[in-house]
């Protein structure tokens, strides 16, 4: 089993954090952003996990779920739902916000784009009774969401003070040694600037307008 990652690719933070947290044994190989690890995909994608069966997992969330499961924790419906939200709702906005912030220096626009998903997260976190998103022990959705937000949260202006529940939860997850070393490994202590090379190679992400299409 081998995990392919690349420095400065934000999607690699979550899989490295989960790998360390679960204690799963797996080789790690650092490759270039442009390396085509999955033979059937036209566009290079990372991180990738080469499974013992020879199959490739190219979804970072599926890799995280897999590590958690072989580490002894099967996902619940609530976890799956957060992962789906992260992939479908949050990621497109994060991709756009990171490009705005890191490549164009437009932090106000990045903050604007993040408003809706962050308010949604705040609402959910403020209603919960557990230490983490769905339970009292850290679960796959905590790491996945923390890692997704981490590069943006390095920018103080993108951490609105009124989102107190998000902030407390974010600090709690981020304090885990596994999260700290994963962030260090991907960003190399260079902060958001480390993501520049990766972001420049991504297609420009434009957000869908919030108005329903007319018929």
């Amino acid at each position: 089993m081998k995990l392919f990652v690349s420095e400065g690719n934000p999607h690699c933070i979550k899989v490295l954090a989960v790998l360390e947290l679960t204690g799963v044994k797996c080789d790690i190989e650092n490759v270039n952003h442009e390396e085509k690890v999955v033979p059937f995909l036209s566009r290079p994608v990372l991180p990738v996990l080469l499974l013992p069966s020879g199959q490739h997992l190219f979804s970072s969330n599926a890799i995280c779920q897999y590590f958690f499961e072989i580490g002894g924790k099967a996902p619940a419906d609530a976890s799956t739902q957060w992962l789906e939200w992260e992939a479908t709702e949050l990621q497109p906005i994060l991709g756009h916000a990171l490009q705005m912030l890191v490549l164009q220096g437009k932090s106000a626009e990045a903050a604007k784009a993040l408003e809706d998903p962050m308010n949604f997260l705040e609402q959910n976190l403020s209603k919960r009774t557990s230490s983490f998103l769905t339970s009292d022990t850290v679960a796959v959705e905590d790491i996945v969401l923390w890692a997704a937000l981490f590069p943006l949260y390095l920018e103080p202006s993108l951490r609105p003070a009124e989102l107190t529940s998000v902030f407390t939860w974010f600090e709690r997850v981020g304090a885990l040694p596994a999260c700290q070393s994963a962030a260090q490994r991907v960003l190399q202590g260079r902060g958001q600037a480390a993501l520049k090379g990766f972001l420049q190679k991504q297609p420009v992400i434009t957000l869908r307008r919030d108005t329903p299409p007319c018929n």
Binding site: L51, P52, S53, Q55, L57, F58, S59, N61, A62, I63, Q65, Y66, E69, I70, T80, L83, E84, A87, T88, Q91, P92
Partner: peptide
């Protein structure tokens, strides 16, 4: 198996992220 479950989840995600969008 855990491997198969991960592969199934991956294709479900592919469907809702890569095809629907």
């Amino acid at each position: 198996t855990p491997e198969q479950r991960a592969v199934v989840q991956q294709w479900l995600e592919f469907r809702v992220t890569r095809i629907d969008e």
